[in-house]
Design a binder for these strands. Structure first.
Lengths: 167, 167
DNA sequence: AGGCGTACATCAGGGCTTTGATAGATCTTG
DNA sequence: CAAGATCTATCAAAGCCCTGATGTACGCCT
């Protein structure tokens, strides 16, 4: 006897966290796999992708776009910079703010890597009807709201602009 | 104003990965928050929970239950062991296999921590109808299958028992 | 102008996770 | 019995991610 492995596995997997975790993990694993040939990790790719859409933003904003802390983004950017894929320079109107943008090499690499990453996401989306995709997105969004909402001690205000961009 | 921040944010968030990632992150963040007072991280809690259901299993099996690599589980277990929350000892019938189980202190701590963790999951589940929860679970499962399935070079076989339990 | 609040960048420390490689024990099979 | 496959544990290296704490720069407001 001894705990009946199958049943235990089910119990553990049935936890609401389990399903989300496994999905996220599967997605990360697959993306990692297709990104590996380019020497990119998923966070690195995500940062570069965001950077391609918003060139020259601050590290902090980039972090927010990628849903990570500024510290995490700093380590990612440092690696990318050491490989010459991105370039950082002090902002002209905001000394102390560092604006980041893709280098030419970075743009070229991203173009190729992006094709693969998009293909993975497409493979995923194609396995569902458009309605199902919308439904899934909606349910996940609601989950985020529910979990994020009962706010504890965070100060509430606006955010938006304050002027640290360029171009 | 270059790059219209709002629009960029939307584009980034709209990526299929974004929704799943944010949901997982929100869940992790909330669980971390309620677990912090107990000095436990989410992976530590997960391992202890699995351990409470399957006492005395090997580290490798525990890793599989928690959907992490044996290496990850090893670091988690090492921390838990150093705090006296779990105990490891060589298996009687399988020298070289280490069986792990919760210590009394670990059981006591888990009981309290589990209540909080379950409350978070319950808060989440309660925000949806039972049908929606089932639907979400189903969609996520399908996503995992789609992403995991196109298998590359993994060997296929059965698994199940081989006999490394106790009690 | 002096202060307060906000944002940015970074150092420090703790943990998790993955890939890759090493090595001993056990089971299966010829 | 010996070989090969399988499972287990662990070392090592590289990254990512988070919390907490500093120190600086800028904007607004009195």
């Amino acid at each position: 006897m001894g705990t009946d492995e199958k049943k235990v596995a089910e119990s553990v997997a049935w936890r609401p966290g389990g399903a989300v975790k496994r999905a996220e993990q599967a997605l990360m694993a697959e993306k990692s796999r297709v990104l590996r040939p380019f020497g990119l990790t998923v966070p690195q790719y995500a940062a570069m992708y965001a950077l391609s859409l918003a060139p020259g933003i601050s590290g902090a904003k980039l972090a927010r776009l990628c849903s990570v802390t500024p510290q995490s983004m700093a380590t990612v950017i440092k690696t990318l910079e050491s490989r010459g894929l991105v370039e950082r320079r002090p902002s002209s109107d905001h000394a102390q703010v560092l604006v980041t943008r893709l280098s030419r090499a970075g743009q070229a690499l991203l173009r190729k890597a992006d094709a693969e990453a998009v293909a993975v996401e497409r493979r995923l989306v194609d396995a569902f009807t458009p309605d199902e995709v919308a439904l899934l997105r909606g349910l996940l969004e609601r989950a985020v709201v529910v979990l994020t909402d009962g706010e504890h001690d965070d100060t509430e205000h606006d955010d938006s602009e304050h002027g640290a961009d360029s171009s």
